[in-house]
Simulated scan of single mutants.
Amino acid sequence: MTWSPRAAETAALAVVGLGLTLGVVLVDPLGRVLVGAGALLVLALVVRDLLIRPRLSAGPDGVDVRRLTGVVHLPWGALRVSVRESRRLGVRGRTLELDTATGVDDDGVLVVLGRRDLGADPGEVARRLRGLDPTRRL
């Protein structure tokens, strides 16, 4: 199973980034700096979305998380899957947490992915990952 940012969202971001790039010529010099910086940030998100596909993939030996610096492999035996809900400024958010730390002195790996990273609800992804885990205790 694999999860990635939705292609339609990435395409919409590309359109917004190109629109901002074209808008640079219509504004004053200070506006060019601000609009240009916004365009660069949005287009950087588009490039990131295209380079790290699929963002998360699960197989028989564990879970692979793709980052800009490479792929991190998280074996099933050490993996703890959880969903964290938070509320900031009145907006509720859910994130998927993949943790491999087993003790206090263990330098495990913590990966936090949101809905945009996964292209799906983090709770649903967590449920499916738990179903794929061959080491899961019933």
Rank of each mutant, 00 (worst) to 15 (best):
T69D: 11
A120R: 07
T135A: 12
V125I: 07
G62K: 01
G19H: 01
S82A: 08
G70M: 04
L118A: 05
S57R: 15
D99A: 07
V83K: 00
L41R: 05
A120S: 12
V81W: 01
L98E: 14
V72D: 12
V65R: 00
G31W: 01
L113N: 07
R130T: 08
G17K: 00
D64G: 04
T100E: 11
T102E: 12
R92D: 11
D28H: 12
G131M: 12
D133P: 13
L22Q: 10
V91T: 13
L41K: 05
R87G: 13
A11N: 10
R127P: 10
L43R: 05
D61L: 08
S57W: 01
L34S: 09
V15M: 00
D64A: 13
V81S: 00
L110G: 07
A120M: 01
R80Y: 02
L20E: 06
R6M: 10
R80W: 03
T100P: 05
S4G: 04
A7Q: 10
A126I: 06
R87M: 15
I52C: 14
L43K: 03
E85G: 14
L98A: 12
W76N: 04
E97P: 09
T2D: 13
D133Q: 09
R48E: 14
R136E: 12
L56S: 03
A39D: 09
I52D: 09
L132Q: 15
V63A: 05
R115L: 05
G31I: 02
G114R: 05
A39Q: 06
V15L: 06
P75L: 02
V71N: 07
A58N: 04
R115Y: 11
L26C: 12
A12K: 01
T69F: 10
A78L: 11
R67D: 14
L50K: 02
G23E: 04
V104E: 15
G19T: 03
V81D: 01
L45V: 07
G123P: 02
T100Y: 09
D49V: 00
G77K: 07
R67C: 11
R127A: 15
S86W: 04
D28C: 08
L110T: 12
V65C: 02
V111T: 08
D49H: 11
R55M: 05
D61R: 14
L22C: 13
L20C: 08
E9N: 14
L20V: 05
L18H: 02
G17F: 00
A14I: 01
R128P: 08
L132G: 15
R48W: 10
I52Y: 03
R67S: 13
D133E: 08
M1Q: 13
V47H: 01
S57A: 14
A37T: 14
S4N: 12
G114P: 01
W3T: 05
R115V: 06
V24A: 06
V81Q: 01
R116E: 13
H73P: 07
L51W: 07
V15N: 01
L41H: 04
A126F: 02
V91P: 10
L22E: 06
H73T: 06
L34V: 15
P60F: 01
P60H: 06
R6T: 15
V33A: 12
